[in-house]
């Protein structure tokens, strides 16, 4: 007699299954914990930061860590701990809005043109190629320099440029799915186009888009902090890790603590997102390493 160990188990929703799978992997557990930690920190830091982030105290300038200022102070005498705790808020806000928007518009266009196919699709892909061939920083800087920094410019700019590679991915996924027999079967039954897209195509393309979104998020954060570092992102005195590193770099030889704290903040967030993306991709059965950055 056989006792089945799997089939009698209670059924879980797909979300739960995927979530469980992610948490069962060390990378997923560490990654998700880091991401959650940073999100919580972004929400709570204004109330837990020990000092005002813009409070300047010239007597503290570049002072090393002490019992009052655990991580020391920067070149304007501001408390580094408070600034580090709050340094991810802007980045998380901007990328947290821009990533889903980018995936949505890129995904929408990609699926649409993947379905339409033919000449129109060919032309679109050339345009996408053309955009991808320009360095990201050039595209973004031109807009930022023209229209100014600030969330109002950064979010649309990031959304636009980061949606373009998504078009490619969504289009390829669409091509894969519409060639499969279950889509043929739905067509042969006579379902409407909308119903085929909604029921057969979307649920399958969404997996790919979710992984894509997680990856885009980490790349967008890289881009955002690079912009800040170059001085085109967040405007002072708002604390931001990229900007803090850029500011503290000059005093690195005698006040290295000013660099190290924001480095840890920024890196741990991006690593967290990346580890989660890895685990998500594995849980959904998509090989992430095969994807090249664009």
């Amino acid at each position: 007699m056989t006792v089945s160990s799997t089939s009698h188990q209670q059924e879980h929703g797909r979300f739960m299954t995927v979530m469980k799978d992610i948490l069962a992997r060390p990378s997923g557990l560490i990654g998700l914990t880091l991401v959650l930690f940073h999100i919580l920190l972004a929400l709570l830091s204004p109330s837990i930061a020990p000092y005002d982030f813009k409070l300047q105290n010239s007597s503290l300038m570049l002072s090393p860590p002490s019992s009052e200022h655990w991580l020391g102070a920067d070149h304007l005498g501001r408390d580094i701990l408070s600034r580090t705790l709050m340094g991810g808020r802007e980045a998380l806000l901007v990328t947290g809005i821009a990533t889903p928007l980018a995936v949505i518009w890129g995904g929408f266009i990609g699926i649409l043109f993947g379905l339409v196919g033919g000449r129109v699709d060919e032309v679109l892909m050339r345009i996408v190629d053309a955009f991808l061939s320009l360095p990201w920083i050039l595209k973004m800087l031109v807009l930022i320099v023209t229209f100014g920094t600030g969330i109002g410019v950064l979010i649309p700019t990031l959304t636009f440029f980061y949606g373009i590679p998504v078009i490619r991915v969504a289009r390829a996924a669409t091509h894969d799915i519409i060639a499969r027999d279950f889509v043929w079967a739905a067509k042969a039954r006579g379902h409407s186009r909308i119903s085929i897209i909604w029921r057969e195509l979307l649920p399958n393309v969404l997996d790919t888009l979710m992984v894509e979104g997680a990856m885009r998020w980490s790349w967008m954060l890289l881009a955002f902090s690079s912009l800040s570092f170059l001085g085109f992102g967040v405007s002072p005195p708002i604390p931001d890790w990229g900007l803090m590193i850029s500011d503290a770099r000059g005093f690195m030889s005698f006040a290295p603590w000013g660099v190290i704290a924001p480095v840890i903040g920024l890196s741990s967030l991006i690593i967290g997102i990346n580890l989660s993306a890895d685990a998500l991709a594995k849980a959904l059965g998509i090989d992430r390493a095969q994807k090249a950055p664009m």
Binding site: S226, F229, I245, R249, V263, L266, S267, I270, I271, N274
Partner: peptide
């Protein structure tokens, strides 16, 4: 993983 995730300006710094 570190090389891919840590921003270039951080590793450079």
């Amino acid at each position: 993983i570190f090389a891919m995730t840590i921003p270039e300006f951080v590793s450079a710094t």
